[in-house]
């Protein structure tokens, strides 16, 4: 994919007066910066062809592509259960959900692409392990109940994070998030319902549901990112109206939401310190295991290696399909050109 590089213009055309070009570029940047600042102050949207600070662009490419990668890798823990779903209905639901995750990945890649990084490059970054994705997907889905816990807690945390992102200052990102959020609410409800069915089944089934919640609770809370004190990029993202609430605020909001939902399930959350704080008007919860979190981020989670290996295999095994489709398109295009020549 060839991309125009405006900053190379002076080099490409040595005959042009370079100083004048440099003046013009500086002028453009100043006007662009003022326009960008105004958009931020008025809480308006930035669109792809607007001038934007380099760091704003970089931050967004990183965040949106990581988000896309997370949706793609996120298909794996659940996809693994499609052939093992306990009924045809559950299987249909799960297939629809996993297909949605693929769709979410594609919406987000499209949004990231408007910032000037090609789709193939992003795929390559995931393939080579250069890019990160959400650590939660490096944990296994051990039982059918985990599929429920993923829907309820992992998708629940994702929704809590994503609803404010619908108002992110970058237009294409916000629009992708609106679409994602619309579809995501079914995911959370179906997960909750899987757990509800299990927790109202046999003792063994209820225990299975409880175990899944025990396993998923901590990592789900960590999906909001490190505590505010350890999240150096948050402030800039908030100044740029990309992020609307801090990691800890969103985490608190999520905890407050899931406590009554767990009660309705008849299950407990694995935190003995969890209790209502009248003064704060929120639930207090214990510190999370951040050493584990950072260890998983660094690649030492239970399934980091397997997730990436599976992605690579899928991409490698699908290569011939992509090549065949491209060859067919080229052939059709040639045939069209040929017949156009004949009829001319």
């Amino acid at each position: 994919m060839s991309i125009k590089k405006p900053e190379l213009r002076a080099v490409d055309s040595p005959n042009q007066p370079i100083t004048q070009d440099a003046h013009e570029a500086a002028d453009d940047a100043r006007v662009g910066w003022e326009h960008f600042q105004q958009l931020m102050e008025e809480d308006k949207r930035v669109e792809p062809r607007d001038w934007m600070p380099e760091q704003y662009r970089k931050t967004l490419v990183r965040q949106v592509s990581q988000h896309a990668h997370s949706e793609i890798i996120g298909m794996q823990p659940e996809g693994n259960w499609i052939s093992r779903a306990p009924s045809l209905k559950r299987k249909s639901v799960l297939m629809a959900k996993v297909q949605d995750e693929a769709g979410h990945g594609l919406y987000l890649y499209s949004a990231a692409e408007t910032l000037g990084t090609s789709r193939d490059e992003m795929y390559q970054q995931l393939y080579t392990g250069k890019a990160k994705y959400s650590s939660i997907f490096n944990y296994p889905a051990r039982t059918w109940a985990d599929v429920g816990a993923i829907g309820w807690l992992v998708d629940g945390a994702a929704i809590t994070n994503q609803v404010p992102l619908c108002r992110a200052s970058y237009g294409p990102y916000g629009r992708a998030m609106v679409r994602v959020c619309k579809e995501e609410s079914f995911h959370q409800r179906q997960g909750w319902e899987i757990l509800y069915t299990l927790s109202h089944g046999t003792e063994e089934q209820k225990q299975m549901a409880q175990d899944a919640v025990d396993r998923t609770y901590g990592p789900a809370l960590q999906m909001f990112g490190p505590p505010d004190g350890d999240s150096p990029n948050s402030q800039q993202s908030m100044a740029w109206n990309i992020k609307r609430f801090s990691n800890d605020d969103l985490r608190q909001r999520f905890v407050d939401m899931i406590v009554p939902q767990a009660e309705a399930l008849g299950l407990t959350l694995p935190d003995p310190e969890l209790k209502w704080n009248e003064e704060r008007g929120h639930y207090d919860y214990a510190d999370l295991d951040w050493d584990e979190f950072f260890s998983v981020v660094k690649g030492n989670g239970p399934l980091n290696h397997q997730r990436l290996a599976h992605y690579r295999a899928a991409r490698d095994n699908g290569a011939w399909v992509r090549e065949a489709a491209a060859a067919y398109a080229a052939k059709q295009a040639d045939a069209t050109r040929g017949s156009a020549l004949l009829s001319a």
Binding site: I3, P48, R49, R62, S65, E113, T114, G116, K130, A330
Partner: peptide, 29 residues
Amino acid sequence: MAQTDSNASADEVPEGGVVTEDPADHSVW
């Protein structure tokens, strides 16, 4: 969430965010 350093490098910023494609190159969809 995970913080890595940026994926994009400065020289890949297209003019106005529009990616131009060569229609004859079918290797890139």
